[in-house]
Each structure stands twice: as C-alpha cells, then as structure tokens.
Nucleic acid binder design. Structure first.
Length: 457
RNA sequence: GGUCCCUUCGUCUAAUGGUUAGGACUCAGCCCUUUCACGGCUGCAAUAGGGGUUCGAAUCCCCUAGGGAUCACCA
C-alpha cells in the first residue's frame, strides 16, 4: 500500500504544540512506510482564517523540518467540488434541505440535550415545498437511524457506536459554503489519503464523517486518533498553561531537534532515548505503540532534552545559530575564542539564548567588573592580580605555560588555587562561575588578560 | 447530562498471565573538582479502589471512583 498522510491545520493562529506533534506523527508514519506526507490548510472559515496564520504555521513546520512532500493544498480552493458532493448526496437522497432558522434550532438543541438524543430536523422527512423556494436552507446529511458503526482505530482500538446517536450534521451552509465535516472528507478522498492521523478531539467526528464516505462508496481510510497533550493540571493544553506556540520555543532558544524529540515521546515510546531523534524515529515509528492516554507537557524534561541536544550538536552549527540569533559580528580572534569556549559554555545552559549572559566578558575589549561588591574584592587583591598579570605577560602563550605560571605563583606565595581562583575569575569574567580559568586566560589572550588584571577599580 | 476514551513513581513511559514492577526527567545525597556546570554512583518514589477468573493478575472480566474529549450554519 502506498501510504499517504496529511496534516490539516486550520489557519486561525500560530502552530500549536499539539498540532506540531500531530504533524510529526503524520510525517513519521509516512516516512516509515516510504509514503507521502502532505499538508492541507483548512481555511474554509474565512472569518477566522488569516494569511498571517498560514505563514506562522508554515514557519513552524519548516523549523521542525516536517515539510509537505507536495505543494501545500488550500481547502478554500476546492470549495466547488465540495459543493458538488453536497448536491450529489442530496440528489441520492442521503441528504436533505433544512429550512430551520436559528431560533427554531436553538429550541431543538435545548430539547435534544435534555432528552439525550441528537438533533433531528423536522425537514428530514418532509418533501420540499414550493413556497420554500426562496427561503434560506442548509443541507444536512441523513444519518442512518439504526444499526451501529464500528471504527477500528489504530490507536484507540475497535470502537462501536450506535447510529441513532449520530446527528444530521450540516454539510452545506445557508450561504452555500461547505462545512469542515464535508470538506475534510472530500479533500482526503481527492488527495488519496490512506491514513488519517489526528488529535482524538476528532474521534467523534470520525463516526459522522465515515457516513459520507459510505454513501459515496469511497475508500474508507485508516484512522489513528492520537491523544491530546495536556497541561500540568490535566486539561487540554491552552494558553493559561504557558506558551503553546511551537515557534515560541524557537524564540526561547530551544532547538528544533529537541522539540521534535520531546513532542515525539509525548505518547510514543521507543526502546532507547536515542531513538527519539528524527533519523532513527523515521525507521522505528509505529502507531501501534502510541499511548491512548493523554500526556502532560513537562517543561523540565524538554529543557533536559534540549540541553543534551545542544551538547551533541556540531560546534559549527550551534555557533552559527547563536551568531545569527544575536546578530553578532565577531572578528577572527573573537570567533576563534567563542568556538573554543563554546563546548564548555554549552554545558552550563539549557537553552542557547542563555549564552547571551556570557557575551560581555567574552567579547568586550574594555570589559571590567560592574558589580560593586565584587569590585571591593578586586580592590583588596589589587596587588596579587597585578603580580599574576606581570608573570603571565612573561610567559610564552600556551595552555601548559599558563597553568605552570599560575602554579608557580601559588607555590611561591604558599597559597592554594582556591586563594587566587575566585579573584581571577571575577577579574576576567565579572562572575563567580565560569569554565576553567586556564582555558579562559588562554582564549582571552595575553593583552586582554593582563589589561583586565591591571584594571583600576 | 448523552456518547466515547483514559487511569503504572510528581512527570514521560517499559513490562502484551510468572520481573526484586525497569528506564528517563525532577528531587536528595555522595564522588570528581579552581568556581559553576558536565559526568559517574546511590537513594526517594507507582500498578486509582473493590470484587472476580487463574496455581499465579499491572496485564483478562465486572463494579466504583477520578480525569479527559465531544455534543455549532468552528475546524
């Protein structure tokens, strides 16, 4: 079977974390089976859709590296074929015109909710009357009123529902536009989608949509309804749980690989942690071991994964990421310094944007410590810093020599490294913690080091 | 409320009738150490509750409780 999957977001805002995960699952499943993964923008609600949102979604998918294998489909461009299908169903007697106005509908809705039965329009069994010709109507699908419908969902398992609980859903609005319920089914069919992988908030829809497919004798796709991502309180992830925009995490300094692998392990489980990376997951992914229960979004775990990812990336890649992000223009010395220190610096951050806090001592030529309390300490050890500076000035600039110079100094003064370390660190970086001092001194170079040690506070 | 789904450490999960219920994150402690980290080691911590079936149940069945999704001329 040639597998074809699709990710079908509606462009009403940025790409949501949950949506991103759905895209990942669709992408992975298609790749695993050497199939195709497509993207379709469901923009049939003109009031809520926007060009901006489309761009945001596209940007998010691109960042995540789950781009459509074909040109992106815009549902709004297929409206005519959807309308045609609505009328075909009407003609075949599987749908009917309903002239109910909103007040009448509201009354029916209240009543049906009280009785626990779905809305059945009185127009279902009426013949169309001549005097209704000019009245507005919607087209509703005539749901089977007896029997059952079973879906063998790849994730949810075999689920059976009584047809009598299915409502006669609207497939064509009174303004002659198709609803999602119709459009989605028609597009899936036209695009040859074999596997519908989506959030399980759509599970109930599947039982209704499948009726259209049956009436039209189309191929019934495989369904896989994946559980939603929840916030820490157990409710569907929403803005009050913090950032739900995928791209927001890009802005915060997470890498797309980390995001990908975190989202993937929310629901799907591999044998090894390493299998959550994009390449390996492409070979291993299976819908069968997607969990049925929703997972809670855990920022701490994400951070941990991101930190690991940062430290496994090629230095040249992460270097480029940081330089681009902060629009750094570095001279040769600074580039070399940054690249050399980067591996050590990365061990200290979980998101790469936190590297920004190291920029001043790293790149400012005339850097000095700004903290008043630290300045007092430096004043107190003014002489010591000067002495060390002058000795460093004499040595040939290698890591080994720098180390020896410092060791000789403490030896002569009967000190330990702990006596000079913290002061040196503050003088050179303005901070009480940093990577190894010797490598910092080496990378900063003789001139800058000595200048900082001689600074008059 | 109707319908559907779910329930293993705090979190993500493994274990598809036989394991001392495993791993990862978090947290705590220790080691390493010039600081902060990284790393290494150790520890805390779970089968929602109750009934069955079975020699044996996290696993199969039933009930209860809790949680979630959905019930639009939105998608």
């Amino acid at each position: 079977m040639n597998v074809v999957t699709r990710f079908a977001p509606s462009p009403t805002g940025y790409l949501h974390i949950g949506g991103a995960r759905t895209a990942i699952f669709n992408y992975l499943f298609a790749k695993k089976h050497s199939g195709k993964y497509l993207v379709r923008i469901e923009d049939t609600d003109k009031n809520r859709s926007s060009e901006e949102a489309i761009k945001a979604i596209y940007k998010g998918l691109k960042w995540l590296n789950v781009n459509s294998d074909h040109e992106i489909v815009y549902q709004s461009q297929n409206l005519n074929s959807h309308i045609k299908v609505a009328y075909e169903l009407l003609k075949k007697g599987h749908a009917y015109k309903c002239y109910l106005n909103s007040d009448e509908l509201e009354k029916l809705r209240i009543k049906s909710r009280e009785n626990g039965i779905p809305i059945k329009s009185p127009w279902r069994n009426k013949k169309e009357l001549d005097d209704n010709k000019n009245k507005k109507f919607v087209i509703r699908l005539k749901m089977p009123s007896y029997g059952t419908t079973t879906i063998d969902d790849i994730v949810q398992g075999k689920v059976t529902v009584k047809n009598e609980i299915l409502d006669d859903m609207v497939i064509l609005r009174s303004d002659n536009t198709p609803t999602y319920m119709l459009s989605s089914v028609v597009d899936d069919n036209d695009m040859g989608i074999t596997h519908i992988i989506r959030g399980d908030d759509h599970f109930n829809n599947a039982f209704r949509q499948i009726q259209i497919i049956k009436y039209l004798n189309w191929n019934i796709p495989y369904y896989a309804h994946i559980p939603l991502i929840h916030g820490t309180d157990g409710a569907k992830l929403s803005k009050r749980h913090g950032a739900t925009s995928l791209f927001h995490y890009h802005d915060l300094g997470y890498t797309s690989d980390a995001m990908f692998s975190y989202l993937l392990q929310l629901g799907w489980s591999a044998k090894n942690d390493a299998d959550y990376c994009i390449d390996r997951a492409t070979k291993l992914f299976a819908l069968e071991n997607v969990s049925k229960s929703p997972a809670k979004f855990d920022l701490k775990k994400l951070k941990n994964i991101n930190a690991k990812n940062l430290n496994s990336m090629k230095i040249s890649d992460i270097y480029k990421l940081v330089v681009d992000r902060f629009s750094l223009s570095l001279n040769n010395d600074e580039q070399k310094r940054f690249k050399s220190l980067l591996p050590e610096l990365l061990k200290r951050v979980q998101v790469y944007t936190d590297l920004e806090f190291e920029f001043d001592w790293l790149f400012q030529k005339d850097f000095f410590c700004k903290d008043k309390n630290y300045q007092l300490k430096l004043q107190k050890h003014d002489l010591m810093l000067k002495e060390i500076g002058s000795q460093l000035k004499e040595c040939e600039w290698t890591v080994e020599n720098i180390k020896n110079t410092l060791n000789q100094y403490i030896l002569h003064k009967s000190l330990t490294f702990k006596d000079i370390g913290p002061i040196l660190r503050i003088a050179l970086t303005g901070k009480t913690n940093s990577p190894d001092l010797v490598s910092i001194i080496y990378e900063l170079g003789c001139t800058i080091t000595v200048n900082r040690l001689n600074y008059k506070y």
